[in-house]
Design a protein around this nucleic acid. Structure first.
Lengths: 220, 220, 220, 220
DNA sequence: GATGAATGAGATTTCATTCAT
DNA sequence: AATGAATGAAATCTCATTCAT
């Protein structure tokens, strides 16, 4: 939890710090991310960082929380909760991808967290986050099953893992790949997200949904 | 590439070093993995490590390569290349999971590498590995499409991403989860893999294959 | 010397600051005592502290001076200056111990100062304080010698050192020890001093006086 | 406990490090003593210190232990354990003073430790040391009482505190004082100890013993 | 007079890598 | 070929003090 000091900061300065810190944490694993780097690029004194946050971990968790909340809000905004399951899933996937493209750093920080292994201090924290995501999907799947939208024999827990794997970051990467944009460029140059048209995103998403809905097998 | 010195080492010593190093890299992100730890536990001098490998990165890449090759060999051994697509895919998935459970450290090192972002020194290397995996799946999918096993309108590249996401490590994690085994225990205690019966693995795999083949939608 | 600002403060606020600061300096060596801690616990702004005192040293010396003065006043109050030497000494020892038990923090700050070595900035200050104490005892001893109360061949300066060593804090510690009270508890919980009865104190004091008067040797 | 590395060091280098470190710890309280200072003055790399000792505390405890052992050995060497109580005590006091004068830094480190208050990490360690000293004196006193050398009504525990207070460092300070040598000079300039003649030391010691034996009171 | 954000020097500690033996 | 001591850059973090509001 950041200290009050940070929250009192002028909007502009606070944003600058967040921006720079996100960039650092998006492009380095937690233990390699350097506070010295961040303060240097944000143009503040090293000690100031400790007026704002208790320690490195505090800063990281703040950013992660921020990113997760923003991504969640973004998705909720783009979704009709009363739509049927596949429409809802399509909207979620679409919003997820779009968020990642429009907010490369935020998206990357969340994605990194999902896959974080072996950073002992943070493990517990990550596991909680992962469990929450899993349960969200599991709930959705249960409901769809109850309503007869999806087959009764599907294992919701397993499916939740599968969906998480697919959404992880694979799809955004696919898009970057097909546009020939490297991850480094993407994280550095904020404006690249605009290169992707609504149609591109829609096409990819509907392909995925079609796969999930009907499977791969060619029927006669 | 390890130096000749390392290859000349007595089998037993070489194995010990590999074993210890794998344990370290499986349970810590690259930048947190400590050479000091490794040499201490392997009972060799720190300088010796530099007689064997050029630097930390060299050692890591060697292990990664080793792990990838072993996993690949394991999968190839368990697979009938002339089987039809879905059978083949099922065998691949099954072998992949089984390998991860039987070789926790090797499996983990490969899995970590797949998801590693932001470690500049290694990025290029990882991208090459990922590209290889993608192309492998892409080739398989193309062939299946040509043979009419899967629908013509599927985008093989995108599907390759999806398959990679699913196989990543999600399924092994699902299994560990349902057995209530923490990742830490799993990496430390080598014998845990035996807890999983062939039936368990078969059931999970066939569920996934069924999903990929037929999709989720309930057909009347 | 505190600034006028501090002296203008509302009595209550001033007392609170003093209390908190004493607690900090009693339980940490000078260099580890933290102004940040003090202001946080006193509920004032850090800048305010610098309106009241020139710097950390200034604050410390103020407290030390205060503690010394209070202890001295307490002792003077409990002493009959016209009593004969051993009675006087007994009263001094008794009052000294009692003060320490009734005012743990003040007593501790004074005791710390007596033993403080190696804090360059403060050395000169401490030496002055020590010299004053020594001269006080030296004077007393000279007078007693002149009056024939104590032996003529005693070296008053040396004896002053010896008395200082004994009074330092050894006796209070002996009492705490025999009651099984740790120094930490003692400094935190203000009320512990009441655990000691007048008789306990009297017994200890008279033992010490008896020793100083007659020595240890068994006479037939 | 220092690492093996330190013990393997060339005698000369090891001594230099010890010497410099002692100087630092003798003239600064633990938390102010600076490793950076030590390595700079010892002419070694900062990292090397951590090849020798686990951390600052480890180094300090090593020095303290060293100092205590040397002082103890020195005293034991100068003492006839079969002498009667007062002779023995005289020899102990004399050896203690002489040690402090001949080894200013060692003596100071031990003396500081005796009085250390509030350095939480080390508190337990110090208390153990103090308790050992107390018990040593207590044992001596008990024995003397049993043998009828000292009065039966003396409280050995209390007397142990008193003796510790007297020996603390008071007597060496008295001597430095009478020679007009400041503590700073004394710690810096190793050669000063030679200024004190055997007679000076003997005279002081015998005065103290006389006091302890016969008390201060003038008997008609 | 009060505030509390800003500062930056300096502290301890880690670790990959080098190199003399 | 093996050793392991030496290195030093870089990391995180603390804290007395300053100063603009």
């Amino acid at each position: 939890m950041p200290k009050q000091t940070f929250l009192n900061l002028a909007e502009e300065k606070r944003q600058r710090i967040i921006e720079v810190a996100l960039e650092e944490f998006a492009s380095h694993p937690y233990s390699k991310a350097s506070l010295s780097n961040i303060v240097a690029r944000a143009g503040i004194a090293k000690g100031s960082m400790y007026q704002y946050f208790h320690d490195k971990k505090d800063l990281y968790i703040y950013l992660l929380d921020l990113a997760a909340k923003e991504k969640l809000a973004y998705i909720q905004k783009g979704v009709d909760p009363y739509a049927n399951f596949f429409t809802l899933l399509e909207q979620i996937i679409l919003a997820g991808i779009r968020f990642n493209l429009e907010n490369p750093r935020l998206g990357q920080v969340v994605a990194n967290a999902m896959e974080y292994k072996g950073e002992e201090v943070l493990q517990e924290f990550f596991e909680r986050g992962k469990e929450m995501s899993l349960q969200f999907f599991e709930g959705m799947l249960q409901q769809a099953r109850d309503r007869g939208t999806i087959r009764k024999d599907l294992d919701s827990r397993l499916l939740a893992y599968v969906l998480l794997g697919i959404l992880g970051s694979g799809l955004s990467e696919y898009l970057l790949d097909t546009m020939g944009i490297s991850r480094r460029e993407f994280l550095t140059n904020t404006a690249l997200g605009e290169k992707f048209s609504e149609e591109d995103l829609g096409r990819v998403t509907s392909k995925v949904i079609h796969l999930l809905r009907n499977g791969m097998e060619a029927k006669e």
